[in-house]
Write a protein that binds this DNA or RNA. Structure first.
Lengths: 228, 228
DNA sequence: CCAGTACCTTGACTTAAGTCAAAAAAGCGT
DNA sequence: ACGCTTTTTTGACTTAAGTCAAGGTACTGG
């Protein structure tokens, strides 16, 4: 399966590793094929390894006592997830579920730790990946505590625009309900804000595509946080 | 200065390192003595290394456009900070300022990266520390998005109770204004909620000490998130 | 001990965003 | 195209928490 080696070498975590090191990584990885909606792990489960998305999409989420779900992250091809408890402890701190039929690579804990302690460059890559995650979390906390929902949505749209390299239109790729959860709000509120942004000529919605009519205005809103 | 070696060997980051490795670490560290209220770095500053608190207290915070400040973390002796951009990029993602007269150890970026790539166990320690940080952030995001302020406060009190190993009373160590910022709210709201918790016989306040009258009730509130 | 400053509390008011309920629109398999 | 489910939107209402403003309390240094 040379496709898998390709996936591994494309993942940021394994960037710049030698052919031999990549082969070592391949050796310890286990393929998992999952249907849409499959639970990969639940909060509190023992962690005996972590995953990389080879294909498909996975959501990482928490559930409140009342059953309200908050999505922390949505990961696609090349992204690792569940790597935190590999180094921090034994339990997963959140739930993971596939959003699409997915192909995952599983890396058993002990084998990976062995590998990392023999490969300083792999260790440094891993440190880089974790640090990027921390930076993203910092942004997310900033958004949640400093900004109102319109500001958070604007931030997200600006982020998508950079991610997708387009200034005219972005694709959501997830349902608006899921987006609401990712932004720490509920579908009703998100829907109202999208309508308001429409009225303010900031965007135009067309299904899961959002036409950016005033990217400057959105950036402004993302920084200053007030709509209207 | 053998006191500094003591501080280094006590820091979780350097746990379990050999005498020789600790000496290497000491070699590259630079002492910085700061008065209370000294800014260590600002968001966007170039990162040429990270710090460990040897003595004193440091707050990591973000400032919104309107000047509202949100504290992300407060670190004391043994805690490292600013380590994220060492591996992720070049800029600090938040501001750092001393809350007390403090003694810091500075670790220059390149020297530390060299050191880490020669010490697999140091790399693993570092991975552990970053992973713990990520776990804390996950909790913080969960709190901010899933719970109302009373629930967040209850979470924090329960956390303090575990941290300080007491079930009867906890010490805040920071001002109530700073606590408000740490919880993502404002002093007025925090004050009102403390009063309400008093009326509900959950706590009793006495300056910066909080008497836990009903720890079970607080845990309940932290999980379920509703007061009254 | 007193003045001055920083911190904390209280009150009246406003507002963003959540809840509940129902209708409309979009997807999907047959 | 049809009926079914899921997603999205809209409306009326409630509420948590923010703003502004004014007192009160406590700690500091002279």
């Amino acid at each position: 399966m040379k496709k898998i080696l390709q996936i591994i070498s494309d993942a940021p975590l394994f960037n710049g590793l030698s052919e031999e090191q990549l082969n070592d990584v391949r050796q310890i990885s286990v393929d998992k094929f999952c249907d849409k909606g499959k639970t990969i792990f639940l909060e509190g489960d023992d962690c005996n390894g972590f995953y990389i998305v080879a294909d498909g999409k996975v959501k990482i989420y928490k559930v409140s006592f009342e059953g309200k779900e908050h999505i922390l992250h949505i990961y696609g091809p090349g992204n690792p997830f569940g790597e935190v408890p590999v180094f921090a402890g034994r339990k997963f701190p959140a739930n993971a579920q596939t959003l699409l039929k997915s192909h995952l690579l599983f890396f058993p804990r002990t084998a990976f730790v062995d590998l990392i302690s023999k490969n300083p460059s792999l260790a440094l890559n891993m440190l880089g990946v974790l640090s990027m995650r921390l930076r993203q979390f910092t942004v997310q906390i900033e958004n949640l505590s400093l900004k109102e929902v319109p500001g958070r949505l604007a931030s997200y749209l600006v982020y998508l625009s950079q991610e997708q390299g387009r200034t005219d239109v972005v694709a959501l790729n997830i349902s608006k309900g899921q987006l609401a959860s990712l932004l720490g709000t509920i579908p009703e509120t998100l829907s109202r804000i999208l309508t308001k942004m429409n009225q303010h000529h900031l965007i135009d919605t067309s299904g899961r595509d959002i036409i950016l009519k005033d990217l400057g205005g959105l950036k402004d809103l993302a920084e200053h946080g007030k709509l209207q």
